[in-house]
């Protein structure tokens, strides 16, 4: 049977991808950020899963305003890195896992979550930057990736509570897949940031640190936090953090914290990163 061995969260700032692609990771501005992922790269080299279910948001790339799905799962064989206006990132094509993805879609829809099924889409920095942070610059990504896109662009996104409960449904779906697969669930985006208007640049370190603590220790209570608290306290784009609750809902109630990193700033954003062991 498939099993979820670990959960990972990380921010997915596009400038981080540019720093990797342009060879700037050792520059004084970026070095402290990448230092926070050194442990993670070593860890994942010894814990490379068969499949990553990667929860992220599309940034007006695959989904325009024509169709805005709240939850969408990528069931394709492969996904090309998108041209977001700066040209395509020079990163490997993302290989999917259509059999597990289709199984998850069927199981989760039958658990009353209406996933949109996608058979063709490009993936943007929301998905590829986390892979770069954990795996560096390989010729091919070392495992399969199933994209799970969540709308956080057009307000309102799904509530934290619904995201957390989707995580539970995903766990039941994965654990009912017959093949013996090691699966990790990643939740990306955040932490506090605002990219628009005169309030751009907002960072709320106490909010972020409390979010990291509560995500690990009391996720069900954290999932009750209303949208207004995210956008007011963590910035209009900080609401991406609801996606971390999907990852957390897919793990056991108690998990072991393997690694934690928090850094300000990456461009406009507070970067948070966790590795949570789900095997105990």
């Amino acid at each position: 049977m498939a099993r979820i061995s670990a959960g990972i969260t990380t921010s997915h700032v596009p400038a981080i991808g540019a720093a990797v692609d342009l060879g700037k990771t050792a520059q004084p501005y970026w070095a402290p950020l990448f230092a926070g992922y050194e442990f993670s790269k070593r860890w994942i080299a010894g814990h490379t899963p068969d499949v990553i279910l990667l929860v992220y948001n599309d940034h007006a790339t695959a989904f325009s305003l024509d169709i805005v799905p709240t939850f969408a799962i990528g069931c394709a064989e492969r996904f090309q890195p998108a041209d977001e206006g700066w040209g395509r990132r020079p990163v490997p094509v993302v290989e999917g896992h259509p059999e597990l993805a289709a199984h998850i879609a069927q199981s989760v829809i039958q658990q009353d979550f209406d996933l949109t099924v996608i058979h063709r889409m490009d993936v943007d920095h929301g998905l590829t930057v986390p892979l770069s942070l954990l795996f560096g610059q390989p010729a091919a990504w070392p495992c399969r990736v199933i994209p799970l896109a969540v709308n956080v662009v057009l307000y309102p996104p799904p509530s934290g509570r619904r995201c957390y409960e989707l995580g539970h449904a995903l766990r039941r779906a994965i654990e009912s897949f017959d093949e013996d697969l090691d699966v990790q669930v990643w939740g990306t985006g955040g932490m506090s940031h605002q990219l628009q208007g005169p309030r751009a640049g907002l960072i709320n370190q106490p909010f972020d640190r409390a979010f990291l603590d509560r995500l690990i220790r009391e996720p069900a209570a954290l999932a009750q936090m209303p949208h207004i608290d995210y956008v007011r306290l963590a910035g209009s784009e900080g609401i991406e953090l609801v996606m971390w609750l999907i990852m957390r809902g897919a793990l056991h109630e108690r998990v072991r914290e393997v690694h934690r990193f928090y850094h300000v700033p990456a461009s406009n954003t507070a970067v948070g990163h966790l590795i949570l062991d789900n095997t105990e």
Binding site: A60, S64, L65, V153, L154, Y155, P156, Q194, Q196, G197, P198, R199, A200, I228, V231, R232, S236
Partner: peptide
């Protein structure tokens, strides 16, 4: 969210207004 300073929340009303621009 109308009471957050320096911030416009992109809701359905804004999306309708900005469809062609976006």
């Amino acid at each position: 969210y109308a009471d957050i300073p320096g911030t416009v929340i992109f809701d359905a009303e804004q999306a309708r207004r900005g469809y062609h621009l976006n």
